[in-house]
């Protein structure tokens, strides 16, 4: 499976997501005002398709394509994207991402079903965990809070047990799984200098748990995980990097950002 080129979470964190959504809705409204034969319609449509091609590739990348077939999957995803742009109704109350994600996964599923390829990873859970992402976002928007498992099951027409299994599956596939074996052998005892040398260990905020709750609620699951690794398990930045499959420098940057946000929130 190739690395995702587009991480939708990044937008969540950077904040500009509502503006982004509003802009897309406006583009679709504009599109619907034009005659499908007109050059204006054509160019607006091309623009919307181009803007979402990276996302379509990202969705396609979540499926494990047989060697050499990744580009085929991208083509299938683009096709579904174009159909989605043509059919999406901005007044329906669903974001375009919420609409296009199941369209793309559906098209890819059909493609797999029609081809005789032997796909070696059990796909059912992968598909479901992918749909889970879109549905979680959709419901959160509709309910104005995080949805329950039962609500997600109803939305996706499946049973709650399957949703939990899909959560398990998505965790197993994600790079941030906690199940990566911790190398307790030699790196279990980090040199003292490394522990003390990390800039972030100067972090000595006295915050009680009740004050922390609302602050942590704003962080992504991965940010919470990194904080716990660093300050609960006392792992070094290098060890965290190893476990998450990123460089120590990236961990350092992530920690600086997270701690900065916490400090700001504490004002």
């Amino acid at each position: 499976m190739s690395a995702p080129e587009h991480d939708p979470d990044a937008e969540t964190r950077s904040g500009g997501r509502d503006e982004q959504r509003a802009r897309v809705v406006e583009q679709f409204r504009e599109l619907r005002r034009h005659d499908p034969e007109s050059p204006q319609w054509r160019s607006l449509r091309d623009e919307l398709v181009a803007d979402h091609m990276a996302y379509a590739r990202y969705v396609a990348s979540r499926f494990s394509a047989p060697p050499g077939a990744a580009e085929d999957l991208n083509q299938v995803a683009y096709l579904a994207l174009v159909k989605s742009v043509d059919n999406f109704d901005p007044e329906y109350g669903v974001t375009f991402i919420g609409y296009v994600t199941p369209m793309v996964t559906g098209e890819i599923k059909r493609y797999f079903r029609d081809s005789t390829w032997d796909v070696h990873v059990p796909r059912r859970m992968q598909e479901l965990s992918l749909e889970l992402r879109g549905a979680t976002e959709l419901l959160a928007q509709r309910l104005d809070r995080s949805p329950t498992v039962a609500e997600l099951a109803e939305e996706l027409g499946t049973r709650p047990e399957e949703i939990v299994e899909a959560i398990d599956a998505s965790n197993a596939y994600s790079a941030t799984s906690l199940d990566r074996p911790v190398d307790a052998g030699d790196s279990g005892s980090a040199p003292l200098g490394e522990l003390l040398g990390d800039e972030d260990s100067a972090f000595d905020m006295v915050v009680d748990r009740e004050a922390l709750k609302p602050l942590l609620a704003r962080l992504s699951a991965r940010d919470k995980q990194i904080l716990l690794m660093r300050f609960f398990r006392n792992m070094t930045q290098s060890q965290i990097g190893e476990e998450l499959g990123v460089s120590q420098m990236q961990v350092s940057r992530l920690l600086n950002r997270i701690l900065g946000e916490l400090r700001d929130a504490l004002g």
């Binding site: 949805p147 329950t148 959560i167 199940d179 609620a217």
Partner: peptide, 26 residues
């Protein structure tokens, strides 16, 4: 460590029964 996934999975199913949100479950 490699068996902790079983504990986490059990927690997922039991938490779902309880009506926890995805965030709370996470």
């Amino acid at each position: 460590r490699e068996y902790v996934v079983l504990v986490r999975s059990a927690v997922g199913h039991l938490g779902a029964r309880l009506g926890l949100t995805m965030e709370e479950l996470g």
